[in-house]
Amino acid sequence: MVDLRVNLAGVEMANPLLTASGTCGYADEYADLLDLRALGAFTTKSITLASRIGNEYPRVVETRAGMLNAIGLANIGLDRFVADKAPLLEKLGIPVFVNVAGVTVEDYVAVASRLEQVEAVRGIELNISCPNVKAGGIQFGTDPVQVCKVVSAVRNVCRKNVLIVKLSPNVTDIAVTARAAVEAGAQILSMINTFTAMAIDIETRKPILANNTGGLSGPAIRPIAVQMVHRVYSQVAKAAGVPIIGMGGIQFAHDAIEFLLAGASAVAVGTALFVDPGGVLAIKDGIAEYLTRHGHSRVSDIVGTLELNGRA
C-alpha cells in the first residue's frame, strides 16, 4: 500500500499535489468541477494590501505548448479576502497557502501580519517574482539582497504560518536567489514562477498583450523548470533541509514524477487546471502507480533520486 502523505516544513498534506497560485482563484470558482479536498494543499491567487484592477485587455495569449499571461495581479485586496474568501477556505479541510504580493517590504509585512490572525490560513507564499507589474515584485525576486530583505522581514512576523518563497526563473543563476531566500528564513521554496516573454502580431507589428510582455507558463517551460528544481535541490535545498514545491507545465503524472525525481517534495498544477480542472486528480493516481511499480511505499522515497549520467 502506497502512502501519498507528505510533510512540508511541518504542514501535513494527504498527497503531494497543490494548485499553483492564480490558476484556481480562491477555491470557489472551481468548487463544482474539481473536488479540492482531494488535493494535498491549496494555494490562492495573489493578494495585495489594496485591491487591484489589473492590466488592460488582452491579458492572455496562447503560444505553442504554452500560454502568456499579464493579468497584473488583479485581486480583491486583503480586506475583502479576509471578509469574503477566508470563511470558505476554512471549510476546505486541506492546508491553505495564501500567495502574497506587494511593492514595498512594508506591504508584504502588513499582509503577512494580518494573515497570522486568519485561522483558515496555514502558510503564505511570498510572490517576489510576478513579471507583470510595473514597480512590482520582480526586482525583489531577481536581486539576492532584496530577496534577503523581504524574506527576513516577513519571516519575523510569521508565527503560525509557514513561509514559502516563490522563486523567479528570470535570473542568471536561480541557486543564488534560492540561497538568499533560505538564509533569510524561507521554510519552503516554490519554483518556478513564469518566464518573462513576448508574442507579436506580425501584421500590426505590435505585441499581442496590452502589457507588451507576459509570463510564459504551460508545457513549454517544463524542462527548464525541472532543471532549475534539480539545480536548487542539489546546490541549496537538500543540504538546508528546505522542501521544494515544484511547478511549471505539469499536466500528467509523468511530469509530476520528473519534478519529484529532480528534488521537489510536492508539485503544483497551474495552467493545466484551465484545460481540465477535474482531470488533474489523475496525477495522484499516476504517482501512486509509479511508486508501486518501483517498489516504494512513500513519496519521499523518490524525492531527489535522480541519477545523473556520468560525464566522459
Binding site: G22, T23, C24, G25, E29, Y30, L33, K45, S51, R52, I53, G54, Y57, P58, R59, V60, V61, M67, N69, I71, A74, N75, I76, R80, L273, F274, P277
Partner: peptide, 28 residues
C-alpha cells in the same frame, strides 16, 4: 480571449460603467 472560461484566470475583462457597489466582482 479566454484562458479558462471559468472566472479564474481574469483574462477576459470588459470595461463596465461603475455605480453598482453591490456587485460581486473585483472593485478597482
Amino acid at each position: 480571449h479566454m484562458g479558462c472560461g471559468l472566472g479564474t484566470c481574469q483574462s477576459c475583462v470588459v470595461k463596465v460603467k461603475s455605480g453598482d457597489p453591490a456587485d460581486g466582482g473585483a472593485r478597482p
